[in-house]
Write a protein that binds this DNA or RNA. Structure first.
Length: 273
DNA sequence: ACTAGCCCCTGGGAGC
DNA sequence: TGCTCCCAGGGGCTAG
């Protein structure tokens, strides 16, 4: 499931392949993927546009087009982008963009949870899904004082708080479990009862793990592949996610799996206090 | 203003 | 082997 490191990996790979290309045509067999505007308008407005650059905000991928347009993509669970001279169609490919230079770019999504928007540049500051996001964890705006204060005000379990994109943008289920393991904090601890040292640890581990995961080009657990069709390599670095019944790498105790806020949650009862 | 729970989707694994 | 059931989960939405 694509979280910040996976979206960053997609952004970097797509940037290399599609920057400077013009969108010649777009076809869809499942127009609901485009959340807004209506697909007819989306198509009319995007044809002829040039992809000038790509960026990322949290788990959102932004295609900056000329003519002051931005195409925004959220991959949710199983979305991914492909670039190839010819896209081999299948029932999971919902959008195909014909690009200049003989390339095509496609959006594939098995579970169809992903969404795409086309907005004017000036609408970006009013675009609620991005407007609401907390700081970028790898940016300078991610500041311990603010992070600590947000936790102090929140009685929810730390796992829930870290999944909340308004607290910090980009973490999902896999990296939250890994961050809490590495920080030695149990997922069920109420955020407002964490000691300062524990919050500091979590703050630093978030940055450390995300940066490392980007180096490994993300985690391939279920359906994530880069636009080259390669998986990431971070799954070899996972310590607890999906490791129920395995030995804890630190204490050799057993990794447990519980459900927190409807999410599978993995932790070591001995190492995480 | 907040939160809990539902909903969107389909492949794959478990159970029989 | 083949069927059914249920789980995976990000985030928007609704009800309370």
């Amino acid at each position: 499931m694509p979280e910040l490191p996976e979206v960053e990996t997609v952004k970097r790979a797509l940037s290399r392949k599609v920057t400077g290309k013009n969108i010649l045509n777009v076809e869809s067999n499942f127009v609901k993927i485009v959340a807004s505007p209506d697909f007819k308008i989306f198509k009319k407005n995007i044809i002829g546009k040039k992809i000038e650059s790509l960026s990322r905000r949290g788990k959102f991928l932004l295609f900056h087009l000329n003519g002051n347009k931005i195409m925004i993509s959220h991959l949710r669970m199983t979305g991914h982008w492909l670039v190839a001279p010819k896209i081999v169609k299948n029932k999971f490919i919902h959008l195909i963009f014909q690009l200049s230079g003989g390339q095509a770019m496609a959006y594939s999504d098995i579970r169809k949870f992903g969404r795409i928007w086309l907005i004017d540049t000036k609408e970006l500051e009013k675009f609620k899904p991005i407007l609401k996001l907390g700081p970028e964890p790898l940016g300078t705006e991610f500041n311990f004082e603010e992070f600590s204060q947000k936790l102090a005000k929140n009685r929810s379990r730390i796992k829930v708080v870290l999944l909340n994109q308004q607290v910090v943008a980009g973490l999902g289920n896999i990296y939250v479990d890994e961050v809490l393991y590495e920080s030695g904090v149990r997922p069920l601890r109420p955020a407002n009862r964490l000691k300062m040292a524990e919050k500091k640890q979590i703050f630093e581990v978030i940055r450390k793990i995300l940066a490392k995961a980007i180096k490994f080009r993300g985690t391939t657990v279920v359906n994530f592949t880069t636009p080259e069709g390669k998986g990431g390599d971070f799954q070899k670095q996972l310590k607890v996610y999906g490791k129920k019944g395995h030995k804890c790498p630190r204490c050799k105790g057993e990794i447990k799996r519980i459900v927190v806020a409807g999410r599978g949650t993995h932790y070591c009862p001995k190492c995480q206090k």
